[in-house]
Design a protein around this nucleic acid. Sequence first.
DNA 1: AGGAGTATTTTGACTACTCAAAAATAGCGG
DNA 2: CCGCTATTTTTGAGTAGTCAAAATACTCCT
Lengths: 221, 221
Amino acid sequence: MPTSTVEDYLKCILVESQASPGARVTTGQIATALSVAPGTVTSMIKALAKSGLVSYEPYSGVELTREGRELAMHVLRRHRLIELFLVEVMGVDWSEVHAEAELLEHAVSDRLIDRMDEMLGRPSVDPHGDPIPDARGRLEEPDAASLVGCPLARALRVVRVTDQTPEFLQLAEREGLMPGSELVVASRSEAAGTVVVEAADGRQVSLGYRAASRIQVAAPE
Amino acid sequence: MPTSTVEDYLKCILVESQASPGARVTTGQIATALSVAPGTVTSMIKALAKSGLVSYEPYSGVELTREGRELAMHVLRRHRLIELFLVEVMGVDWSEVHAEAELLEHAVSDRLIDRMDEMLGRPSVDPHGDPIPDARGRLEEPDAASLVGCPLARALRVVRVTDQTPEFLQLAEREGLMPGSELVVASRSEAAGTVVVEAADGRQVSLGYRAASRIQVAAPE
DNA sequence: AGGAGTATTTTGACTACTCAAAAATAGCGG
DNA sequence: CCGCTATTTTTGAGTAGTCAAAATACTCCT
Ligand SMILES: [Mn+2]
Ligand SMILES: [Mn+2]
Ligand SMILES: [Mn+2]
Ligand SMILES: [Mn+2]
């Protein structure tokens, strides 16, 4: 059985490689994402390679093997189902569930995960709009536009928020930018690096490009 | 923060010392209960003593300090609330929740535990009839009679089952000996070491002394 | 092509947990 | 009070994960 550390490394590599498909995930990326020293990642990576969970090219980076990806998908499934369970059943705030799920994903049995899945009606997305892999580890990653790349002055709906920090999530909630919320992008200033958004309640919010890129939108239903 | 290993050792020492109050808990007891080698326990105990969580008398055994007991009580509270949550909310079988809670007790936050406590209506006993420490770590251990020591031919009610193995718990369920079940002890044979019990449905079951001592009863409400 | 600067790997060390087997001890039974 | 046995402790070793700092490799700019 993989340790929870191994599970976290694999999940991290999966998520990072989804962010930039095709490219190898680098040591430094992993070190930053997991808040560990670069040398720690190198030695861990070697162990993962020896177990056949990743393929490792020194000075270039890693890629998940079929086995590694399957394992990572199961961890990601557990993580996202737990997040949704915490919000829907336990009434925990969506800004706090990520940290909670980070630990629980290693402690919950497959039987229990399936009970949650059932209770929640086999959901396809978590509270942040992240897609939930199915029980066989299949996942389709929909490519939506962010507030930086979407059309202006058009009615849109938030479908995903890709920043897990409590501060960002609380801000998004306050400003009416949670998944499901409707909005219009009023204007963008390349020079200032800001995006002005009008939320459903009519309030205008100004976001920096960094923040705006974390909010994905689609056409309203 | 204590590791989950430390939490398990402390919980183990607490439970063992409740089984025989006053006496020190021995190295061998802990080794058996946790399925680790005796030498492992000795070194762990020394570390716990250095942290001020137990007082250690070589060749005699350990005792929890005030701080150690508080920590152990919180772990025990988490364990038992999780067990009840799994049975009541998630519909998991009572014979399986112990193993599940053994892991979850180290991963669930205090906030979440309190949500469970609330959802369950501040319960005082878990699915096996074990008392649940309150949020301040207080616990009253009711002393009930077991099927070996209780009066014969009298209507009684099962209040607690003190064996966590799935096999035993499944047997108890099959034979109508779960907490809340009514029964009568028909007879006991000192020589054969057996106790004959008549369950609520009229069926008679014969139990060995070992098994019978694991079932605690009280007067029906 | 040669450096400069950045990223990665290596090295050496540390904490936490574990076991097997050897050594020490306590507590009887005579 | 002496020796045997069961228990406990000690010793030596191994796995898993981590860091700081030194060494190395890659990349890009001049
Ligand atoms: Mn995690
Ligand atoms: Mn999420
Ligand atoms: Mn445990
Ligand atoms: Mn219990």
